[in-house]
Structures are given as structure tokens and as C-alpha cells.
Amino acid sequence: MYDFDYHKPTTVADAVALLAADPDAKAVSGGHTLIPALKHRLNKPTSLVDLSGIAEMRGIRREGNALIIGAFTRHAEVASSEVVQAAIPVLSFMAAHIGDNQVRNRGTIGGSVSNNDPAADYPAAVLGLGAIVHTSSRKIPADEFFLGMFTTALEPDELLVAIEFPIPEKAGYAKMKNPASRYVMAGALVSKGPAGVRVAINGAASCVFRQAEMEAALAANWSPEAVAGIQQPADDLNSDIHGSAEYRAHLVTVMAKRAVVNAG
């Protein structure tokens, strides 16, 4: 990696100030995407702003009918949290199936959602549960947050601080893993709750997206059969050495069906 300066602020305000002062600075959370990119010299920030010292970005709490998870909460904490398991078990399930133990003990929910890797897990939860993203300056509904591959509504000097998940009646997640990376080839998170019936598809396209036809079908009839016959068009889906767009399109239906089964 190239040389860079290193900062470890203790408040969101200080972190934002550091990022605002230097357009080439980068925030680092769990580091699971940024550190490999640095090691491969694919990224050359002037400084890294380490978020691990900011207490206000941590923690899991229930507030009424919502669960609020701090951005710096590690996957392992979400997986093992009794609060999460009781309120939104699908989130614990998802977190428990991200990467491996090492990844889960370092990676954070805020880092994953801010990065918006098309093959990441958490964006499907944020979109599929109709969450609200709390940033250092505003609240952004999930439907307005994910803009495209590795692109979100966050401004360069804006930090994701926490995510507010409305507690659904039912929610389920299923994914097919890429055999090599074990990232998501195609996944689906389905939910029914205060945010309506939602189906978020990850892994298959350049960005997580909602599958409207499946949402309508599930709204009418919450059952695996309701989505089993719905074909996801292959246009605009990803195609790579591990699977064609047609294969991913097929997997979208299979994973949606399984997600409904998992939701119960």
C-alpha cells in the first residue's frame, strides 16, 4: 500500500470534520474492502479516518417498533445479539452467514451498507426491510439510499451513523453463494410489515433492487408458490465466470421462494 496519514477520532463530528477537510481522505470501518484495495494499490487515500473509536456509532437498541443498530456494529455482534434475534431474527441469520468467522469479527454493518457492494448481504436487509439510514446529517429512506454499484446517497463528508429497521411481521432471507468468493451470486430478502411487502434482490445485478412483481404477488398471497412462477428478466443482470445472467435470473426466483419459506 501507499503511505497515508491515520486519524482515529472519537466523535462523529470530528470524523466528519476530517473527511470534509480532505476530499482524498477515506473512512475505514471494518476494512474488509478498503484494506485489500490498499494492499493492491488500487486506492490511494491521503489519510484514513478510523471509525473504531467512536462510541456513538456502536450498539444495538430497540426503540418502539424499530431496531437501531450502530454503524460500527460488527457482523458477529448482530449475529449473536439477543435483541436482534428477538426482534428481527432474519438480521441475525443474515449476519451469521456473511463470510467466515474472521470476516464477521471485523466487518461492520455500516461499512457494508456504505460500500454497497452488489454482492454484499446487508444492502438486501436495508432495502428489503424498508430501513432508514441515519447519517451524520440526515435520515435517508432505504429506497433513496442505494444508487448503483458501490454508489449510495452518502456525500463524501457524510457518515452513516446507524440504521433504523422497522420490525416486520415476517421476514426471510436466502442466498446462493459464489463458489469462490462466497459473496452473494443471487439473494432475496422478503418481508411483510409496517413497510409493506418488500422483496429485495442482491448479488444478481449491479445494485440491490426491489422485485415489484414478486412484491405484488406476495401481497396477494404470502406463499412460496406465489413467487415460484415469476421469472426475473435476465437483462441487466450480472454475468461472470461463475454464472450467466440467465442463471442468476433463475436463482432470483429460487432464492425468493426459499426466502418466503424461511420467513415462515
Binding site: 463458489p179 469462490a180 468468493s181 459473496y183 465466470i241 461463475h242
Partner: peptide, 21 residues
Amino acid sequence: LETCVYDGDGQLLSGSMMDYT
């Protein structure tokens, strides 16, 4: 699981653990 893949120009596509199973 395993297979080495080059593209038509000779770039190694399965050049990391992310791509080579």
C-alpha cells in the same frame, strides 16, 4: 470447483481467491 480462466486476450480472470475456487 477449480478452473483457471483467461479471457480471449490472455488476461487471467481467475487470478485471486475471489475468483478461483
